[in-house]
Amino acid sequence: MSIIVTGGNRGIGNAIATELAKAGHDVAITYRSGEPPLHSYRPGQERPESRFLAVQCDVTDTEQIDATFKQVEAELGPVTAVVSNAGITRDGLLARMGEDDFTAVLDTNLVASYRVAKRALRSMMRAKTGRMVFISSAVAMRGEAGQANYAASKAGLVGLARSIAREYGSRGITANVVAPGLTATDMAAALPEERIKAMVDQIPLGRLGQPEEIARAVRFLIDEGSYVTGAVIPVDGGAGMGH
């Protein structure tokens, strides 16, 4: 199976790509800037075992997404699974949040997922099978002060996935959401220590999640979740339960 993971150069996306590559899948990641991970290879290079292809792509650009799919398909074959993970934050209280900060987060986190899903449908419909997984957040279910833009973008992924599930289930295409809670990534590390402590205090399991724990949930949906679609799977230590 050929799989694209957006935003796969670090954190949760990197853990997902690594998990899927170890499971024997042909995996490609996108990254917007900087250098790709050390355990990846670039287009045109010989593919090492259990490594993933790294393609530079800005997911807010439809033409770059199309070019990425063409490149991945040329290297790895038709794409039959996508994991929409790329995301940004621009936190701030709503009264002081600029419109650019609101729309930029929605464009990267939500609209880009629409772009990726729409492009992926081409090969999935031909194959009459496909797996789409959208990485949301516990924040989408319960809200978070200072993150109206982020919460809105992540909540929108639920509606997007469930609509795709209804539209294309008859074609053998599933669409699901994984909703992580606070996870040990660079994004979490950038938060003040007192804020992390306050957030951990609200998590029944009393700790941050690990990227690998989210990755295993994604692998389940791709490898074993053929009768799971339109679902929201929380991997959040209980932070969002009841929502």
Rank of each mutant, 00 (worst) to 15 (best):
T108G: 05
T103N: 02
R96V: 12
R96T: 13
D107Y: 01
R122P: 06
D101F: 07
S113Y: 11
R119I: 13
S123T: 15
T103M: 01
L121S: 12
R119Q: 15
L93V: 08
M124D: 13
R115S: 05
M124S: 14
R122Y: 15
N109H: 09
Y114T: 03
V105L: 06
L93S: 00
R115D: 01
A104P: 00
A104D: 12
L110P: 05
T103E: 01
Y114Q: 06
M97H: 00
D100Q: 09
S113T: 12
R115V: 03
D101M: 06
K118I: 12
A117R: 03
D101V: 06
E99R: 10
S123G: 14
T108N: 05
F102S: 01
M124G: 14
D101Y: 07
S123K: 13
G98T: 06
A117F: 03
V116Y: 11
Y114E: 04
L110Q: 12
A95D: 06
V105R: 08
A112E: 04
T103V: 05
F102W: 13
S113G: 11
A95K: 03
R96F: 13
A117M: 11
R96H: 11
V116R: 11
V105Q: 05
S113N: 12
A104Q: 04
S113P: 07
A117V: 13
L94P: 03
G98K: 03
T103L: 05
L110M: 11
L93E: 03
S123M: 13
Y114V: 12
G98V: 02
R126I: 10
V116P: 08
R122E: 15
S113H: 09
E99V: 08
V105F: 08
R119L: 13
D101S: 08
R115C: 04
E99G: 06
D100V: 04
L121I: 14
R122A: 15
L106E: 02
R122N: 13
D107H: 00
M125V: 14
M124R: 13
A95R: 09
R122T: 15
V105S: 06
R96Q: 11
L121H: 13
A95F: 11
E99T: 08
M125C: 12
